[in-house]
Simulated assay, not measured.
Amino acid sequence: MTRLPAAAGPREIYRIDWLPGTDLLHGTCHCGREHTAQDPVEMWEWMLAHPRGHQVEEPGGNSS
């Protein structure tokens, strides 16, 4: 069995999927929040801004 060094700590997993038939990317952050964008740079900036980038209301959200 391979073990990670204790200094490695928990791993953060980011996932980006292409939505077939569209120009959209769907990203899931390690915290579970989701985001959709056309621009891969925008997607990575959103993910790597965790948690600051996740505090902004998503476009099309219920912001009455």
Rank of each mutant, 00 (worst) to 15 (best):
M1E: 03
M1C: 02
T2V: 02
T2H: 02
T2A: 07
T2Q: 06
T2P: 09
R3V: 00
R3L: 00
L4D: 01
A6C: 02
A7M: 03
A7V: 02
A7N: 01
A7E: 04
A7W: 05
A8H: 05
A8T: 08
A8L: 08
A8K: 02
G9H: 03
P10L: 12
P10N: 05
E12L: 15
E12N: 14
I13D: 07
I13A: 08
I13N: 08
Y14Q: 05
R15K: 10
R15E: 09
D17S: 09
D17V: 07
D17Y: 05
W18C: 04
L19A: 06
L19V: 14
P20E: 12
G21C: 07
G21F: 10
G21M: 06
T22H: 06
D23H: 12
D23R: 15
L24Y: 10
L24Q: 13
L24W: 13
L25N: 02
L25C: 03
L25D: 00
L25F: 00
G27R: 00
T28P: 03
C29W: 01
C29N: 02
C29D: 04
C29Y: 01
H30M: 10
H30F: 15
H30D: 09
C31V: 08
C31A: 09
R33L: 05
E34F: 04
E34H: 07
E34P: 03
H35Q: 14
H35R: 15
T36A: 12
A37C: 10
A37K: 03
D39G: 02
D39T: 01
V41Y: 13
E42Y: 08
E42R: 10
M43N: 04
M43E: 04
W44L: 06
W44G: 00
E45H: 11
W46I: 12
M47A: 03
M47I: 11
M47G: 02
M47Y: 02
L48T: 14
L48N: 15
A49G: 15
H50Y: 15
H50Q: 14
H50K: 10
H50L: 11
P51K: 14
R52Y: 13
R52K: 13
R52W: 11
G53K: 05
H54T: 08
H54D: 04
Q55K: 14
Q55S: 15
V56E: 13
E57H: 05
E57L: 04
E57R: 09
G60N: 09
G60A: 08
G60E: 09
G60H: 11
G60L: 05
G60S: 10
G61S: 15
G61P: 01
N62Y: 03
S63T: 07
S64V: 09
